[in-house]
Design a protein around this nucleic acid. Sequence first.
DNA 1: ATTCATGCAAACGGTTTGCACGCAT
DNA 2: ATGCGTGCAAACCGTTTGCATGAAT
Lengths: 146, 146
Amino acid sequence: MEKSKDYGEILKNKKMRNTKHRKSVIEIIELNGQPITAEEIFLKLKGHNVTISLSTVYRVLEALTSNGLISKSSVTDDNKNLFEINSLEHKHHLFCVKCRKLFSVNGCPLEDYEKDLENKFGFEIEGHKLEMYGRCECCKRNDKNI
Amino acid sequence: MEKSKDYGEILKNKKMRNTKHRKSVIEIIELNGQPITAEEIFLKLKGHNVTISLSTVYRVLEALTSNGLISKSSVTDDNKNLFEINSLEHKHHLFCVKCRKLFSVNGCPLEDYEKDLENKFGFEIEGHKLEMYGRCECCKRNDKNI
DNA sequence: ATTCATGCAAACGGTTTGCACGCAT
DNA sequence: ATGCGTGCAAACCGTTTGCATGAAT
């Protein structure tokens, strides 16, 4: 079995204090694989018998975000923030309007398009946000059974 | 001077009750031209000597949103929702981070990309939001003179 | 006359913060 | 020894809701 990542090393590289809670939070986010809320992190940690307070979860998330280890997005319409590991790759999201899960998509189709617009408008594009929404495979299937 | 739009007619077409407050809110959003928060709407109305309570602003926004007259997004990271007029044309925007002007772009580069994603993830995409930001031609020029 | 919109204040829920204590350096 | 991380409870703030009143149909 593959040895799990050395989260302590990751923190050290960012000159952050290395604590059990910080390592646990990074690990949960990484294990989860898709964007996750603060409360879900809190509950999953509880499930793994890690005692942590919700406010610590928030403080850890803030620390990890401002050190660039994770990123925060607010795509959902219920005012809950979502956190995910900050991969170097540029990515976008697919939001399922039914189960409200957020799926990450690596890569970006917009490079050529942005170049065209820059030429056309004399605009210098620094970045963009792209959200797509719809129904995930799972929810499509369930709809048919109703 | 051009006559302002008949917001009463717009509400009537949606079979919505035609009230002064609803018309005012639509008008403010339309005048504003770029996405605006509930509180900003409230303050702008106050500035126009329209007395309305903040909760009514929220209720009007909910009514307008669910009738498809405006749309709601939560792109900012401060947990405030933004509202804008729902235009029929599919278009995107270039937002200048310096002068805060908004440039409309007709058309959309995402159709093929979305088909790919649908095949890849089994996701059924219903729509998307794309914002690009940067500097417009004018502001680029001014930067060089500093 | 009926139904729905509004104002007010209070509730709600996700997030932040003050304070005292504990742990990493 | 010091400064930063943590737990707890309370505060915060954008948003929602219950209730009584008022306006639109």
